[in-house]
Amino acid sequence: MKSLSDENIIELIKKNSQQAFKILIERYEKKVANTVINMLGKCDEADDVGQEVFIRFYNNINQFKGNSSLGTYLTRIAINLSLNELKRRQIKNMRYLFIGKSERDDEKYFEIADNTNYENNRENTDFVNKCLLKLEPKIRSVIVLRLIEGYDTRETAEILEIPQGTVLSRLSRGQEKLKDILLKSGYKP
């Protein structure tokens, strides 16, 4: 069954084959993990959002018409859910600000990133990810799709539902900001 095409697997899922769905998850798990973890950082919420991506797909499988590849479709869901999660975090942080609590998710992450020093963490593969998390979410999403996932400008524009010109401007702004963050975190070119 593992050698079946995506179209055949989708047909089997529509006929309620759990085995087929399991194969589809295993096939795209890494792709979704890359998108979600690069957007949210390695945390419990990333795992939950990853699960939600596949659950949403399963519940709305009839809406998938095959206009784009399955990978692109899942990436679109992953990006949208990640952006929602970031908004939720932002609201939560604002609430914490009002009641004076210091347990702010994003800040916790930023603190980790702030303590990240490339000189001391050359082996730390999460270094770039932590720097990436300092970018604004809408710029981060362009960097993740264009430079990490390898989508071209047109595909990135389609996934994010923004004009191609906006993708290019956010990409250039994001690259400059990220270089700056990397250098400030101690990265030596």
Binding site: E29, N34, Q51, F54, L178, L182
Partner: peptide, 23 residues
């Protein structure tokens, strides 16, 4: 160089037994 650094970041994984948990 930035592109290469970011490409190395392309190896993320969820916790084990992800598909089982989704099902």
């Amino acid at each position: 160089e930035l592109e290469n650094l970011l490409k190395q970041n392309n190896n993320k994984e969820f916790k084990p037994f992800f598909s089982t948990r989704v099902l």
